[in-house]
């Protein structure tokens, strides 16, 4: 493999890594922060496989497999941690988790994230399965309020 191919692969790896860093530092959704960190790890994986091809030995690829495994472990633990955090504050906004800090420093809260409102419009035609069999007869009479 020539050096130019290696160079372009390294550029892709470094770009992914830097995008991950930028995302990690700017996002405020916990899940997106975690995904940005994963992006950084996979930028490194591209580096490792590129160098592995360039040097012609399998050590970089073996390293990549270990990185993927550990990234999966981290993701599993991260999601369970995020779930337990969500259960307390009912939001994924990271600014809700800034209670600890220096006493004399102002706590940066930012604008509160808009609440997630899931409005279910009864008139919208949601996707549904193709009806099979006969349509059951609708009950006549007064509708009960639910």
């Amino acid at each position: 493999m020539t050096a130019t191919v290696l160079e372009s692969q390294l550029v892709v790896g470094a770009t992914l890594f830097i995008l991950g860093v930028v995302g990690f530092l700017t996002r405020r959704n916990l899940i997106l922060i975690m995904l940005s960190a994963e992006l950084m790890l996979h930028g490194v994986s591209i580096n490792l496989t590129a160098f592995s091809r360039y040097h012609g030995n399998p050590q970089g690829q073996v390293f990549t497999i270990f990185v993927l495994t550990i990234a999966a472990c981290e993701a599993g633990l991260a999601l369970s941690l995020i779930l337990s955090l969500y259960q307390r504050r009912k939001s994924l906004d990271i600014f809700l988790w800034g209670k600890l800090g220096e006493d004399d420093l102002p706590v940066f809260t930012g604008t509160p994230a808009p609440p997630i409102t899931v409005s279910v419009d009864p008139n919208v035609d949601l996707p549904h399965l193709t009806p099979a069999g006969r349509m059951p007869k609708t009950q006549p009479g007064p509708q009960t309020k639910t």
Binding site: F17, M40, L41, G43, N47, F51, Y54, G60, V67
Partner: peptide, 12 residues
């Protein structure tokens, strides 16, 4: 992730 990036360049 940062340590890993350094390791990948060291390997390279």
């Amino acid at each position: 992730a940062i340590v890993l990036f350094g390791m990948s360049y060291l390997y390279g």
